[in-house]
Design a protein around this nucleic acid. Structure first.
Length: 219
DNA sequence: CCCCAGGCCGCGC
DNA sequence: GCGCGGCATGGG
């Protein structure tokens, strides 16, 4: 393990080996095929709904939107804000998120814009911060931005022993990984999975697939 | 009862 | 620029 680059790639391989391919972003392809809607719009909507919220609660909100045939930008834009609030209620912060969904749907409509929109422009949309922007760009736009979240920060702090702000961490991943969309998508998903299984706030180091390369003492 | 979950904004400093 | 409170539901 000569360099942090080697170590990073080693961790990616270990997590992939342990947990398997994650296939992120999770999307209901059948729904969109039947409705003739674009699955990328579900990714954008999900990215907003999952802000500081468990995915289980987001799934409930997405299900409500599906039943109402409202899992698309056009439908979101056509709904009364109060109606939208009702549908997404289980995901929490539903008043804020209803506004954010309308904002992002307006700015990214048609959804093909995720292929070309500047990151800076995305960040100017109310309710879209760095993580949400990068998740949208990577998973909906197939663009090489590495997504940093609270889990990623925690794992880097423990395994590598350093911390940094969002942008420096993002650059660090992007500089030390092959510029490959599949790697970016899978790695972020695997880090999430790893944080849930072992690298919790109170870590479970016994049985952790990467405890041999971690700077933390075993707990 | 507590804490947490795939953040972000607006404010005061 | 940084730290903090508010936003809200559902689960452990």
């Amino acid at each position: 393990m000569r360099s942090s680059r080697d170590k990073l790639l080693h961790i990616f391989k270990s997590l992939l080996e342990s947990y398997g391919e994650q296939g992120w972003w999770p999307v209901d392809w059948r729904y969109h095929q039947e409705q003739g809607t674009d699955p990328r719009e579900e990714i954008v909507i999900g990215a907003v709904l999952t802000q500081n919220t468990s995915w289980k609660n987001v799934e409930r909100a997405l299900e409500n939107l599906k039943v109402a045939r409202c899992l698309s930008f056009e439908a979101v834009l056509g709904l009364e804000e109060e109606e939208l609030q009702k549908l997404i209620k289980p995901s929490g912060y539903y008043r804020q998120k209803a506004k954010r969904l309308k904002e992002v749907a307006k700015h990214l409509n048609p959804v093909e814009k995720v292929r070309t929109i500047e990151r800076e422009e995305l960040l100017r949309i109310k309710g879209i911060g760095r993580e949400t922007a990068d998740a949208i760009l990577l998973y909906a736009g197939d663009r090489a931005f590495f997504v940093i979240d609270a889990y990623t920060k925690r794992i880097v702090e423990r395994v590598f022993g350093f911390s940094g702000d969002y942008e420096s961490l993002r650059r660090w991943f992007e500089e030390n990984l092959p510029r490959d969309l599949w790697v970016y998508k899978e790695f972020h998903a695997l880090l999430d999975e790893h944080a849930k299984r072992f690298c919790r706030k109170r870590p479970l180091c016994e049985g952790c697939p990467i405890n041999q390369v971690c700077t933390q003492p075993l707990r």
